[in-house]
């Protein structure tokens, strides 16, 4: 669309005499709580943990401290199978700050029998363009995690997920 500015053009580059630039550079450190700490500890050991609701029996991977349906604290930890199913996916072809070099795939993955999904990357799929990608990946595609060699208790201790070889 020739009449629209390219996303790379900076705000300050246009009508600069009307602009008053300033910078806001802040550091934060979140308290993650006990459940997240335990989950990430599992990740370091290549284990995927979830929690179960004592009332309805739902399993949450990643763990949720409270079941939103029952409004009770989840209490039972389970280690789940390292197997996921793609619920939805998208491939990004543009670069955004803080995200990988495109193209890359983000998917909503249902891990084991979890009642909720985990967002993560899918890799290990060869594709030239989006048409090819659409043919290769679907709702229901089975995936498994690929672990990072060096893990530090982070969701990216799983480098990405990739389709299960059949």
């Amino acid at each position: 669309m020739a009449d629209e500015l390219d996303p790379s053009v900076q705000t300050d580059a246009i009508n600069a005499e009307y602009k008053y630039p300033f910078h806001w550079d802040l550091d934060f450190s979140l308290n993650i709580g006990e459940d997240n700490r335990k989950f990430f500890e599992g990740m370091e050991e290549k284990r995927i943990l979830g929690k179960k609701c004592p009332d309805c029996g739902a399993t949450f991977v990643p763990p949720q401290a409270v079941c939103v349906e029952c409004y009770v604290e989840t209490d039972e930890w389970v280690e789940v199978e390292q197997h996921g199913v793609v619920e939805s996916y998208t491939a990004c072809f543009f670069e955004f700050e803080g995200l990988p070099e495109p193209p890359y795939i983000t998917a909503a993955i249902r891990v084991a029998d979890s009642d909720i999904c985990m967002l993560h990357f899918i890799d290990g799929i060869e594709y030239e363009d989006h048409d090819e990608l659409v043919e290769k990946l679907h709702k229901g595609t089975e995936v498994e995690p690929v672990w990072a060699d060096e893990r530090e208790g982070h969701i990216r201790d799983i480098k990405h997920w990739e389709p299960v070889e059949k």
């Binding site: 979140l30 939805s88 998208t90 955004f96 909503a108 985990m118 967002l119 990357f121 709702k139 969701i155």
Partner: peptide
Amino acid sequence: DPLFERNFVTAIQMGALPSSGYMEI
């Protein structure tokens, strides 16, 4: 969510994930 979901998405993926799923259903 900063610990989990923020690592994989920006606004465009939040639009794209349901759009992609909707095409399939």
